[in-house]
């Protein structure tokens, strides 16, 4: 996939160096280096237990690294080591400049709060205090993610799996973040629902020039959404590069196995 973005040749948006995490003595992931530039979509693929979710948590500051560091170019242009952010700065980043779309909607949504409230939360958190404006903005975002405005006051418990994921996306993108983390965003959805969601993510990423890190075990999701791909196995990156190049001309034995294991429809 190719989407428009203004590459900042000078400085990446997100940068990780030697990122390592151990759960006690058990390895989560080890020695990960990566750079992500504005508008770039990076897929992290691998099987369960390969360390891809650990890596996502490290990048998004949900988990502190055992060693290594993650830096992010803040909106003021300064590159900051995320470990040095104060909790207040970190939270502000998480709810303004970043998004996180989770596999299980109940972890990413407030299930007892209406769809409009879910979308409006970030706006209120950054100081919006006009009910009508919050509602209009939430309504615009529901339109964008193809949720009928008539469902605005219903809570997500009454939504289908696909709708919940789309609501998560609206909730995250309402503050126009520059970077979105996605953990198996299409996991557990029917194929037709998946296709619709992928198309939505794809077009929103292109429209807003979003940078994204997408963890998936589904190579077709990676192919459709990402510019670059990292293949992980046993906590380490074993192959990385341009998505179509890695998938069409895989070099590592494990990547060849992964690619050859995909069922052709």
């Amino acid at each position: 996939m190719s989407t428009p973005f203004e590459p900042n040749e000078e400085q990446p948006l997100l940068q990780a160096e030697g990122l390592t995490h151990y759960y006690g003595r058990r390895l989560g992931c080890r020695g990960i280096d990566l750079e992500l530039h504005e508008g770039e979509v990076l897929a992290i693929v691998g099987e369960s237990g390969s360390g891809k979710s650990t890596l996502l948590k490290l990048l998004s500051t949900e988990l502190p690294p055992t060693s290594g560091q993650v830096s992010y170019r803040m909106r003021d242009g300064a590159m900051r080591d995320l470990a040095t952010l104060s909790e207040a700065e970190r939270r502000l980043l998480l709810r303004t400049d970043w998004g996180f779309v989770r596999q299980h909607a109940e972890e990413g949504l407030r299930m007892t709060v209406s769809a409009g409230g879910n979308v409006g939360e970030r706006l209120m958190a950054v100081g919006w205090r006009h009910f009508g404006e919050i509602r209009d903005e939430a309504g615009d975002w529901l339109d964008r993610v193809e949720i009928a405005r008539t469902r605005m006051d219903d809570d997500p418990r009454t939504f289908s799996g696909g709708m919940r994921q789309r609501l998560q996306i609206a909730r995250n993108l309402v503050t126009r973040p520059r970077l979105v983390f996605m953990d198996e965003p299409t996991g557990g959805l029917d194929v037709s629902v998946q296709a619709r969601l992928l198309d939505l993510i794809r077009s929103l990423v292109a429209e807003f020039g979003l940078a994204a890190v997408i963890v998936t075990h589904d190579l077709s999701v990676a192919r459709l959404l990402s510019h670059r791909i990292m293949v992980m196995k046993e906590g380490e990156v074993i192959e990385a590069g341009l998505t179509d190049q890695v998938l069409d001309d895989p070099h590592a034995p494990y990547t060849q196995l992964l690619v050859s294991s995909v069922l052709a429809a």
Binding site: S2, P4, P7, A195, R196, L198, D199, R202, L224, H227, L242, Q245
Partner: peptide, 21 residues
Amino acid sequence: VLRLRRERIGYVSQFLRVIPR
């Protein structure tokens, strides 16, 4: 590479890789 593809090099493959929807 992506920038070259966007600005310099077009490619018509044998098969269309269909994007759903």
